[in-house]
């Protein structure tokens, strides 16, 4: 069900997507469009399938043994399960920031340069330029510009999370999937990341999972509410928070359960 207001075309779209872990259904018949250059927030109680849905957009679920899907997912109108589409290509176009920050035990520079290197970029000057641009993009440059050769593991939790964002930005994906990118951060770092999301949406299409209702209201244009593996309701963020169609949505966003 596409959002009702005048929205741009869908950059990504799932149609009747069902995903199982073994025989257990994690998400059931989810049809959701992710409009281009907009921020889509995915909300819902723990275990309702938000991460599962996000991971199926860049086929990270393929890595989980026993996971299987039905239905389809489209990127620019083309099925991502199309045989002709390379999954490595897909992941370069649809980047991901994980719930738990996971920098490599490498230097700050090498972390950000990683995606570029595996993509075949060798030119030193170009690498440096892209690393700087991505770190600036993730609002981390000023804090690390004098210590790019130091280990990424020496950064604080909030800095590590922004490093992971910078690392994802460096590949210049078209879509950025963020799984609770601010769940482990203090209010200042959280504010920085929200500001960042605002800036990024002019160039990227963003889907973000969050447990924080205020955050969803602040950063997103469209909100999708998941409950027990089903997509209950999706619409403009304004409407979901002020005038939801479903009782369950209202109960959740007003904090009556969840």
């Amino acid at each position: 069900m596409p959002p009702t207001s005048a929205t741009p075309r869908n950059k990504m779209e799932s149609r009747e997507l069902t995903l199982r872990y073994g025989s257990k259904v994690a998400i059931h018949q989810v049809s959701l469009g992710i409009p281009e250059h907009r921020v889509t927030a995915l909300i819902g109680p723990s275990g309702c399938g938000k991460s599962t849905f996000l991971r199926s957009l860049n086929r990270m679920n393929d890595l989980i043994s026993g996971a299987s899907h039905e239905g389809s997912v489209y990127l620019d109108g083309r099925s991502i399960h199309d045989r002709a589409l390379d999954v490595v290509d897909l992941r370069r176009r649809v980047g991901m920031v994980f719930q738990k920050s996971n920098p490599f035990p490498k230097s700050i520079f090498e972390n950000v340069a990683y995606g570029l290197r595996v993509g075949g970029l060798k030119d030193k000057a170009k690498l440096q330029a892209r690393v700087e641009k991505s770190l600036r993009g993730a609002a981390l440059w000023d804090e690390v510009k004098d210590r790019l050769d130091e280990s990424a593991l020496g950064l604080s939790g909030g800095q590590q999370q922004r490093l992971c964002i910078a690392r994802a930005l460096a590949v210049e994906p078209e879509v950025l999937l963020m799984d609770e990118p601010a769940s482990a951060l203090d209010p200042i770092a959280t504010a920085k990341i929200e500001e960042l999301i605002h800036e990024l949406k002019s160039t990227y299409t963003i889907a973000i999972v969050t447990h924080n209702m205020q955050q969803a209201a602040r950063v997103s244009d469209q909100t999708a509410f998941f409950y027990m593996g089903e997509l209950v309701e999706c619409g403009p963020t304004e409407q979901i928070f002020t005038n939801p169609r479903e009782k369950r949505t209202e109960d959740y966003v007003t904090g009556k359960f969840g």
Partner: peptide
């Protein structure tokens, strides 16, 4: 070698063999 490092590498568009050579074996 933490699973996190492998998934991070694959999510950045690395192939399985690149992940092996650049993340798993060094780790």
């Amino acid at each position: 070698v933490p699973l996190d490092h492998r998934t991070a590498s694959l999510a950045l568009g690395a192939t399985q063999s690149q992940t092996l050579a650049r993340v798993v074996l060094p780790g």
